[in-house]
Amino acid sequence: MSEAYFPVGPGLGLEENFLSLDDILMSQEKLPGRAESSLPRLAFVLGQGAGTGDSIPEGTKLEIPLWLAKGLHDSKRRIISVELPKIYKEAWRTVFSADATVVDLHKLGPYYYGFGSQLLNFDNPENPEIAQTLLQTFISRFRRIMDSSQNAYNEDTSVLVARLDELERALFQAGQKGLNDFQCWEKGQASQITASSLVQNYGKRKFTEVDG
């Protein structure tokens, strides 16, 4: 029971949460882009070319992290154009609409929903379809996640969560906590004072001897 620690949650929408660790890692994910004009002295920092003075010629394909793409995005002067990562493209959208439950979102994502919502910040003509796919994917997967999280009691859940994206994992954990608390209450253990999970964790890591 580590109820005292509440991490800053992800923003889950167009806006990121500034202090959220999840959002920072999410915006570290890369997406493909293209230089629309020649960029002086940038080759070195973006890991292309050797000399510090090299410039990136127009039309070069780049892989830039989301945070950089957001920072450099400018609707008036297109210096870097951003393309969709393949899992948000038409071909994958068809896969998701066919059967979203079989897709391994952790391998593809692992921040499928968060990253997808962030893509809506770039004025892409396909935005409505992307948003619709994100929503439909979530709707069709949610039922199974809720079902499995509510029915796996005292089981190894690693298989169940293996293919879930980070948002879905958080939902799964919440469901599991609810299930465990309820089982505790049914067995009359709800009033038992337990060692704090932090202490238990530290114990596992061989920090056992609490001085005193």
């Binding site: 005292a4 991490p7 202090l19 920072i24 704090s196 202490v199």
Partner: peptide, 19 residues
């Protein structure tokens, strides 16, 4: 860096209540 420092403080604050 700010997020790193802030999240650590949240964890340390939790320690006061747990330990």
């Amino acid at each position: 860096i700010l997020a790193y420092l802030y999240d650590r403080l949240l964890r340390i604050r939790a320690l006061r209540w747990e330990y």
